[in-house]
Amino acid sequence: MGEQLLQLLFSGLTVGSIYSLMGLSIVSLFNITGILNLAQGEFVVIGALIAVSLCSIGMPMIVVFPVSILLAALLGGLIERLTINRARGASNLNMLIITIGISISLRGLALLIWGTDTYSLPAFTKGGPLFLGGAALNPQSIWIFALAVVNFAGMYLFFEHTYWGKAVKASVNNRTGARLQGINPHTISLLAFVTAGGLGAAAGVSIGPITMVTYDMGFMLGVKGFVAAAIGGLSNVSGAVIGGLFLGILEAFSSGLISSSLKDAISIIILILVLLFRPEGIIGAKRERKI
């Protein structure tokens, strides 16, 4: 029983790290631009599918990973310029609808280019699973967890210890004040989408070896990322990470101990409960700090 619980915990942490990555991207973009990007899951898929194509022409994973991130980041920037930037000044609801449109368009694009096939990606490191306490741990899970940690640390360092990070925070805090200092909010918005595209691709290429890749997997990933972000209060970076891990572990345990058909329902139930009873997020709202 102990081994089974440990196994479920490992699975939960792996899936939770994926959700944390999604949540991190959604929260960062929301904090910077005020836009709830429902297309974040599609960036993950596009990044992973680009990696599939690059791998198919024989590129090694060490090259595929950064190139996929770069291409998805460029796509993120292009989308921002073609849609979000042109709609600047629109209401939050309109922006939300635009991101839904982006999501549907990207899914359509993925379907056109890569079709309905399911693709696999090679793991970052070869070798079998590690055994800890009798439970198996896939090395790729460690990579995903490490990526989530690096992302979180990177964001913390950027926002708290770099001049540009502070300029972004200033732009979030007071747009007019920022413009008067020469900080261009449109540049900040562009950078936010470039980063969201890149982070999405990093997540996609990392999870591909475990989850496999299909053109339509982005929607549910986006929903899970949104739930992770909502658990943390939508604007709290550390809350999104904790929310993602919490959701992943809960899903793993409910699948393993009750029924796997509960997996997706759990996240929706949590979302409804959070929105109904704790819209400011489960993680202490008083400690919440915008980035």
Partner: peptide, 25 residues
Amino acid sequence: SLIPEKREIFTTLTVLDNLLLGAFH
């Protein structure tokens, strides 16, 4: 440089960060 009536300072940043960002350009 315009100092607007509402001041438009960055309330969630420190005094030092506000001053540093004044030199953004």
